[in-house]
Design a protein around this nucleic acid. Sequence first.
DNA 1: TGTACATCAGTGAACGCGCGTTCACTGATGTAC
DNA 2: TGTACATCAGTGAACGCGCGTTCACTGATGTAC
Lengths: 194, 194
Amino acid sequence: MAENSHHHGDLRNALIDSALALLTEGGRESLTLRRAAARAGVSHAAPAHHFDGLEGLLHAVAARGFQVFSDLMRQERAARPADAQNQLLGITNGYLRFAAEHEALFNLIFSEPMKNSGDADLIAASNEAFQILSETCALFEPDPAGPFVNEIRVWSTVHGYAILRQFDRLRATPDSAVVPVDLVLPRLVPRQRD
Amino acid sequence: MAENSHHHGDLRNALIDSALALLTEGGRESLTLRRAAARAGVSHAAPAHHFDGLEGLLHAVAARGFQVFSDLMRQERAARPADAQNQLLGITNGYLRFAAEHEALFNLIFSEPMKNSGDADLIAASNEAFQILSETCALFEPDPAGPFVNEIRVWSTVHGYAILRQFDRLRATPDSAVVPVDLVLPRLVPRQRD
DNA sequence: TGTACATCAGTGAACGCGCGTTCACTGATGTAC
DNA sequence: TGTACATCAGTGAACGCGCGTTCACTGATGTAC
C-alpha cells in the first residue's frame, strides 16, 4: 500500500484504534466520528464508508472492548494453578483489571447504547466474555438452588465490586483499608473428581 | 407569586423536575440545559442563575436521584418484618426497584461525571443512601474477616445484579427463568440478641 | 501484456442543527429610612 | 405608610463551536477481455 495513497488499506480497524485512544484519553464524551477520523489521519467524511454513524462505531469499539476483556480474563486465569479456586480468582482478577485499566472502555461496554444493539459482532464478543466466566464457574459444584446460580452470584459480585471501586466505596472511612475481592466473592465448593 | 411573573419562585427545583422528566423520557442524551429550561417554561438563559453549567444541573439531579433511591430503600424496608433477613431483603428490593423503575437516573448517579464531584449535596445524598445499606447490614454478625466486609459483599452483589438485569443476563438462555436475587445474595448470620 | 472500464475508498466544501454562554436589558422584590 | 433604591431573577438576541451528514468529485484498485 503506497504512502499518501488515496486508499488506506485498513481504515476500519484504524478508526477503532483511534476511537479507543480517544476513549482512554478523554472518556466517552471525547469520542466523536470527526475526532476519530482526524486521529486516523483521514478526512471526517471517511468513516461513513465503514460505520453506520457514531453508533456503529461505538458498537465496533465495544466489540473490541469485549475482546480485550476476554483476553485479560483468560490471561489471568492461565497464569494460575489449575484448581477451581485459583482459576476463579484469575478470572475475577482479569475482570477487575479490565475495569481499572480500561475504565472508559469498561463503562462503554456496559452503557445504555449497548443494550439490545443488534450488532452481531458485539453480541458475539459479549457472549464470549460471559462464556469465560461461566466455564470457570463450571469447575464448582452447582448451587443446589439451581443451574446458573453460581454464575450470577460471582458475576454480580465482581461487577458490583468493580463499580464500587470506581467510586472509592470499598472502605468504611477514607482512612481504612480497602476490602479485598477475595473476602467478597461467594465461597463455592469445588467440583469433586470422579 | 403572580402568574406570568418575571420571577418564578422556585425555578431551581422546577429545573430539576424538568431534568428528571427528560431523563426518564429520553435518557441522559436528551438532558440539556436548554431543554430543561424550555420544559420549565423559562428562557434558556435562566438556568445560569441557579446552576454552574450543565454539570451543576447534573449534580443536582443526581443528588435528587439519591434521595429517591434512599426513599425507596427505606419504604421497602419499612414494609417488612423487623428481622434481619427481611430487612435486608427490603433494602435490596428497594435498590433493584430503583434501578428498574428509574433506570436512566440510576445510570446517571453511577456515571463518570459523578465521581469526585465535590458537590456537597450530592456527596451527602450519596452517603445517606449508602448509610441505609450499612445500617441494615449491622443487623447481622460482622464477617470474621473484618468490618465492612458484609456491607461490600451485599452491596457489590445487589449492584452487579441490577446491572446484569439491565442487560438481560440473569438467565442462562433466552428460555430459562431469571435467577432471583434471594439466591444470589450472600447468606449472612443475624446478630444474636443479648 | 495491455487496455477499457466498473467499483470503491477517501476528499473537501458545504449544510443545518442544537448546544452552552454572554450580555445588555427589564421588571419584580425586598429593604432603608 | 410611602418613597428611593439596590438587588436579583428572568428575557431575548447574538455568538461561536463542533457535531453528523450530504454530495459531487477523484484517484487508486481490481477485473474482463
